[in-house]
Computed example of a mutant assay.
Amino acid sequence: MPGFDAPSRCSCGSPIEFRWFGYPTAEAGLDLDTATDAFITSISPEGRVWNPYALRMVRAEFRDRIKTAARGELEPVDEVKPVDIRNPPPLYEIRWQGIHVTDQIDGQLHHTTALVRMYHSEPASIPEYFVGHHVHEKLVDVDDISGTQQAEIEIAKRFFDSGESSNWGIVRNDSAV
């Protein structure tokens, strides 16, 4: 796909807008709130224990990373990178590497870190946006890490495909044309 070898808009130093076009659906103006809720849901499986302070910190980390992306200030590869550039649509992942979590397993508390990925697109038709589609905790204690993550990427691709015809729910006021 021409131009896809370019870095993410989220790391190019220019401001862009964030749109959430995934599950759940974001009402106008609530894109960041909706994406944050999807993020928290993705890292709150059964058995995960949150203290209120830690949960507030994790929410803030997510929101700060998205705001940094909207300023175009993410660090390539460490914070944002392309996903499978051989297979359209062009998707990127925004990465969180060390989210501190506590799991309760057999009555015992286990402290560990979680990896999180949010897949987004940067459609050519809306160059002033990046569009979040899916967020998930990357599981590394499974037999097929790559296959498990590919299934998550497929979810993002389905949201991309379903939003393409509707311009991802973005309403423009181009009355000056």
Rank of each mutant, 00 (worst) to 15 (best):
F4S: 09
A6L: 12
A6P: 00
P7N: 08
R9Q: 06
R9S: 00
C10P: 01
S11D: 06
C12I: 03
C12P: 01
G13V: 08
G13S: 01
S14D: 03
S14F: 11
I16D: 08
E17D: 07
W20F: 06
G22M: 11
G22W: 04
G22F: 04
Y23F: 05
Y23H: 13
T25M: 04
E27C: 06
E27D: 06
G29L: 01
L30W: 03
D31L: 06
L32Y: 01
T34E: 00
A35D: 02
A35M: 05
T36R: 01
T36M: 03
T36D: 02
T36E: 08
A38V: 02
T41C: 09
T41G: 03
T41H: 10
I43R: 01
I43G: 00
I43A: 00
S44W: 04
P45D: 00
P45G: 08
P45E: 05
P45M: 10
R48F: 05
V49H: 10
W50E: 03
N51P: 02
P52W: 11
Y53G: 13
Y53I: 14
Y53C: 14
L55I: 02
R56N: 10
M57F: 04
V58C: 09
V58S: 13
A60W: 03
E61Y: 14
F62I: 10
R63P: 06
R63H: 00
R63F: 03
R65N: 07
R65Q: 09
I66G: 01
I66T: 01
K67G: 04
K67Q: 12
T68Y: 08
A70V: 09
R71Q: 15
R71V: 09
L74T: 02
E75T: 15
E75S: 12
V77Y: 14
V77D: 15
V77R: 07
D78Y: 08
E79A: 11
E79I: 11
P82A: 10
D84K: 15
D84V: 13
I85Y: 05
R86N: 15
P89H: 07
P90Y: 12
L91R: 09
L91E: 13
Y92Q: 10
R95H: 14
W96G: 06
W96D: 00
Q97D: 15
